[in-house]
Simulated assay, not measured.
Amino acid sequence: MDKSELRRRIRAARREIDARERRAASTAIREALLDLPWVQMAGLVACYWSTEDEPDTHGLVLALWKHGATVILPVLRPDRDLDWAVYDGPDSLAPGPLGIMEPVDTRRGVDAIRTAALVITPALAVDRVTGVRLGRGGGSYDRALARVGPNVPTVALLHEGELLEGVPAEPHDRPVRYAALPSGIVKISG
């Protein structure tokens, strides 16, 4: 199956998840992540502000921030690369060019992600062996992940059933090291 067909299928399946199940799944993911020492100790966390059918990150971002982490969120640049700015509470966000909430703080540049101790990324699916993630198709996160050091934990948030055997990959695709699902955190073997 090619990437566009897989994206279509996963988006259709996500639309079928009811609101109560989505909230419970997001809470389970948040709690599982917050229980991990390497998440608790991360001083600078690169995350994202979830939209639509993604596992919700709003509570996770708030919890990380309240526990003293500096959280940076992406700001979409005109070239589709990701700049980064600091999250400073719910009132520090405004709609970006695609309607996704972005921090209004000073932009830190595309290389700000290099200093993150933890990177939490969106994905539609992740290959359970190689860690290759299937994104929405713009390549923004693959460019950002290419800047992350090899020892930094990178975590994709997924709904159940989105950790797959065999995700189509291209040379520019960047793998993640962990998948966070409602059932728990999975370390990718690749």
Rank of each mutant, 00 (worst) to 15 (best):
A179T: 07
R22K: 13
T130K: 03
D53F: 02
E170D: 14
R15A: 14
K66H: 13
W38T: 12
H172N: 05
T154M: 11
L34S: 09
L64Y: 00
P74H: 05
D81I: 08
L82H: 03
R20F: 09
Y141K: 13
R114N: 04
P171V: 08
G43C: 02
E31M: 09
T154L: 07
A19C: 08
L164P: 00
V75D: 03
P103L: 06
D79A: 10
T27R: 14
R143V: 08
R136M: 12
R174I: 12
G184V: 15
D79Y: 03
Y178G: 11
V104N: 00
A123V: 03
R147A: 04
L181G: 10
D142C: 07
Q40M: 06
P175V: 01
S189Q: 14
G68H: 06
K66N: 13
E52C: 00
P95L: 04
R136E: 15
L82F: 01
D79H: 07
G109I: 10
P182I: 04
T70Y: 00
R14H: 11
A169P: 03
L82D: 06
Y178S: 02
D81V: 11
L124V: 02
L181C: 13
R7P: 14
P74M: 09
V129F: 00
N151G: 14
G109D: 04
V132N: 04
A42G: 06
L93V: 10
L98W: 13
P37D: 08
V39I: 12
A125H: 01
P122A: 10
R147K: 15
G59S: 04
M101S: 08
A112D: 10
A179W: 01
M41H: 15
V148A: 11
G109F: 02
V152D: 08
Y48T: 01
A63F: 02
A180N: 06
I17R: 13
T121H: 06
L98Q: 11
L62D: 12
D18K: 07
D127G: 01
R23F: 12
V119K: 05
W49I: 09
P168M: 06
M101K: 09
A144E: 08
G135V: 02
V186K: 04
I113G: 06
A146P: 04
G99W: 04
S50Q: 05
G137K: 05
V39E: 01
A94N: 05
G137D: 07
G190D: 02
M1E: 05
L73S: 01
Q40T: 12
V186E: 10
G109V: 05
N151Y: 05
V39D: 01
I10C: 09
